[in-house]
Design a protein around this nucleic acid. Structure first.
Length: 801
DNA sequence: AGCACGCCGACT
DNA sequence: GTCGGCGTGCTC
């Protein structure tokens, strides 16, 4: 925060033509004049400072002029620093490290004093002697000695770019000693945690460290202690490379012209016209699930490629949509680059270079792919544009849609937003004419929208069925098993039991670090906190009243899996949630196997709702819709509707008619009824009234200012102080139509032992307001009394915490 | 962050 | 009279 700003440097004549905005340079920095990496933001011919230092070398140009502009835009809009903005754009910003490696030059012709000789000897002895190791060895005083030695050639400086450890490796732990020796160790000085870790490793397999920690309920430090004592060893094992690597071959023979139906062609023609225009345009393509939106934009991409143009395609979660990348590799071969967070650093860097070198025309990726370093952009597509994954929840808190607008504008490109359930904001902008609107309202080919049944679980309870699978859903699953068709079951909570409490006194087990109730996991027999990862062995005696009244209630995906096993012992079942990830069974593999028909039933959280297009899936079950209905966030309706529509849309995507079953305790809920009919427009018409009445986006912007820190009282004070200050400022600029709420504790009051307060402000965002907030934030961080508290400003957050 | 300065107590 | 531990403030 304190050094993240512009510093002026002189550009020496020899670099005059090379340094441009976006160039990466090395500069002497601070009293010690240590070389730091910097990025040139602006070239000018004067400075407010008098004694400027010189840039010492120019590395390369990492940002185009447009992207330097984008850095400034992000700094302004998302209240982040230069560092955060640049970090979001460059894969190598963090991954490449500059190092000066010293070696001994010609020392025959000069004389040296004692210390100098020692230094030179040390350098000669250590092959890769760095600045840091010299300081470590001889202390900071030798800095003055080194510079002259460099100048007269006694020390030769080799500047190297060293890659940090490659991510393509997975840390795996295995037992280093015999089982008996391990037992001896436990008896002599081991503790309970060590025992748990060793118990798992005793099977003889090598286990990934993160998985080991999950299963044993320990942190990585326990593993490293055991490693230190020589009981276990941790090795880097290479993980299989990107699954996309071998799919580069483009199938020339099968490159077919995409044939669209009338409705699709209509949309395509309109979009093509906009794309041909010289100006930047934004279009929204609304098409119901299964209407063939992908075909429309692929045909558009065909046109762009025919003139060698460039396309960025954003998808919400690439590892969950392997089908789309497959289709693109098949059609466009090595013209495609894929970018997403699950890739290793090396892979990402490789893809980044391919884009920068102009070797590819299409970039497919998640949020950060919007920063693809194209020199020119013709088309940007955001698929499932309402997805919250497009908003970054860490600094820089940007929304990919906003960045896309900026870039489309700078390149006079077309920005195409696609969805079956557009965000209320986008659809409203489309209706108002701010965006161009295209609609496809029929399913493609023979497929029909699935029939949806809403099942009242209260009735099930009355008839004596205490299982989470109601009678109706059970019969439907049976039907599917009999017909050899596949089923997807969706439940929004992972773990086994989602609620642990005492029946005697009403005590609820909560995480000691967070204000979150604990979830019981059966696979590791632990109670876990899903926010901070804290885990604890299950208890039967209530810690509050000392009675043996602890009960495990509530169903998560693990328990659902158990129940399905009991109900359908012969069915092949697979579960997909955060806990099933490991290197043997990635999500892609689970999905791939399910698509191949290796399983009858797939159980999962959100992950199973997105983008799957499997013809043999004819039944979708939503186990409990209620958990989504009552979130106290203004977007809860929108998210519930979108999620239900999406998951229901997974069914019946070929000639087989699809069915969907939604189980709930609130069958009369309006959102459920709207989802039953899959009627987005009816949903929109109601929701937009609510937004208008309550003054929510798109009728205003929302600022969320979050304060968090370890001391509850001072966090609260900070929030109230800033709120008062903000109120004063708003009055002084005579700003009207601003609704500033008083600070309140966040919905999840405590996370990881940090207390949280928030201020919500509804307003029309503009630069005057942004400047006020920026000034407030800067002065807040300067205030000594506030130094243990962080203040985060988030413009239009996805979720209000 | 990382370095240097300066203040103050402990030790020769 | 000097050394070093720690708090403070600056980096073009």
């Amino acid at each position: 925060m304190s050094i993240d700003r512009e510093f002026d440097y002189i550009i020496p004549n020899k670099f005059a033509d090379i340094v441009l905005p976006g160039s990466r340079v090395l500069v002497p920095f601070g009293r010690g004049n240590r070389h730091k990496e910097g990025i040139a933001i602006e070239i000018c011919n004067q400075s407010l400072y008098s004694d400027l230092k010189e840039i010492s070398s120019v590395v390369d140009r990492v940002l185009t002029g447009e992207m330097v502009e984008l850095v400034k835009y992000m700094k302004d809009r998302s209240f982040c620093g230069y560092y955060d903005a640049v970090k979001a754009m460059l894969p190598l910003a963090l991954r490449l490290k500059y190092k000066e490696i010293y070696s001994v030059g010609d020392i025959s012709k000069k004389t040296y004093n004692n210390l100098e000789r020692k230094i030179l000897e040390y350098i000669a002895k250590n092959k890769k002697c760095s600045y840091d190791s010299l300081i470590n060895k001889f202390g900071a005083d030798i800095i003055d000695l080194i510079e002259p030695l460099k100048e007269n050639g006694s020390i030769i400086v080799n500047k190297t770019i060293s890659k940090k450890a490659n991510d393509a490796f997975l840390k795996c732990a295995s037992l280093k000693v015999s089982a008996n020796e391990a037992a001896d160790y436990i008896n002599s000085r081991g503790n309970k945690k060590h025992q748990k870790v060793l118990d798992i490793l005793l099977s003889g397999d090598s286990v990934p460290v993160n998985e080991l920690c999950y299963l044993a309920g320990v942190s990585t430090s326990v593993v490293s202690t055991l490693e230190k004592y020589g009981i276990i060893e941790v090795k880097n094992i290479e993980v299989f490379r990107s699954p996309y690597k071998n799919k580069f071959h483009r199938n020339e023979k099968e490159f077919k012209e995409i044939i669209l139906n009338d409705e699709q062609l209509n949309a395509f023609n309109g979009l093509y016209e906009l794309y041909e225009k010289d100006s930047a345009e934004v279009a929204l393509l609304y098409g119901i699930t299964g209407s063939g939106k992908t075909m429309i934009y692929m045909k558009l991409i065909d046109s762009v490629l025919s003139i060698n143009g460039n396309v960025i395609l954003l998808v919400p979660e690439i590892s969950l949509t392997p089908q789309i990348t497959d289709r693109f590799y098949e059609r466009y071969g090595d013209k495609v680059a894929v970018m997403h967070s699950a890739m290793s650093m090396g892979e990402r860097y490789d893809e980044w270079k391919r884009i920068k070198n102009g070797e590819v025309n299409i970039v497919i990726g998640t949020r950060s792919a919007i920063f693809a370093p194209f020199e020119r952009i013709d088309l940007i597509i955001i698929d499932e544009e309402q997805e919250s994954t497009y908003k970054s929840e860490n600094s820089p808190r940007y929304h990919a849609r906003d960045i896309a607008k900026f870039r489309a504008y700078k390149h006079s490109a077309l920005l195409l937003l696609c969805s079956a359930t557009p965000s209320v904001e986008s659809y409203a902008y489309a209706l108002s004419g701010k965006y161009h609107l295209f609609e496809v309202e029929k399913r493609f080919g023979e497929s029909k929208l699935p029939s949806v049944h809403i099942i009242d679980l209260k009735e099930e309870l009355k008839s004596g069925n205490r299982l989470i699978i109601g009678d109706f859903l059970r019969k439907e699953i049976e039907k599917n098993l009999k017909n050899g068709e596949q089923t997807i079951l969706f439940l929004n909570r992972r773990g086994y039991n989602t609620f642990i409490g005492c029946k005697c006194c009403g005590y609820v087990m909560t995480c000691p670090n967070c204000s979150i109730s604990m979830t019981y996991h059966s696979s590791n027999n632990l109670m876990m906190c899903h926010y901070c990862g804290y885990s604890q062995e299950p208890v039967s005696v209530c810690p509050s009243c000392r009675e043996p009244g602890i009960r495990f209630l509530g169903t998560g995906t693990q328990k659902l899996e158990d129940e399905i096993h009991k109900l359908f012992p012969e069915a092949k079942i697979v579960r997909m949630d955060l806990d099933t990830t490991n290197y043997k069974m990635s999500h892609e593999k689970i999905l791939g196997d399910f698509a191949k028909g290796n399983y009858d039933i797939m159980i999962g959280t959100q992950m199973v709702t997105k983008g799957l297009d499997i013809p043999n899936v004819s039944l979708v079950g939503v186990i409990l819709a209620d958990s989504m209905l009552f979130a106290d966030d203004f977007r809860a309706n929108e998210r519930t509707f979108a999620m239900l529509t999406q998951v229901v849309g997974r069914a019946g995507r070929s000639h087989k008619p699809g069915r969907a079953v939604i189980q709930t305790y609130n069958p009369d809920n309006n959102i459920l009824k709207l989802s039953k009919n899959q009627d987005y427009k009816a949903f929109f018409n109601e929701e937009i009234l609510f937004r208008k009445m309550m003054k929510y986006p798109p009728f205003c912007d929302i600022y969320q200012i979050i304060f968090s820190g370890a001391d509850e009282e001072s966090v609260k004070n900070a929030a109230f102080t800033i709120c008062e200050e903000l109120k004063k400022q708003l009055i002084s600029i005579q700003r009207k139509n601003v609704i500033l709420y008083n600070p309140s504790s966040s919905a999840i009051f405590k996370i990881n032992n940090k207390y949280r307060y928030k201020i919500i402000m509804k307003c029309k965002d503009d630069s005057v307001l942004r400047n006020i907030l920026k000034e407030l934030q800067i002065s807040f961080y300067k205030e000594k009394a506030m130094k243990d508290i962080s203040m985060i400003i988030d413009l239009n957050p996805q979720i209000i915490l």
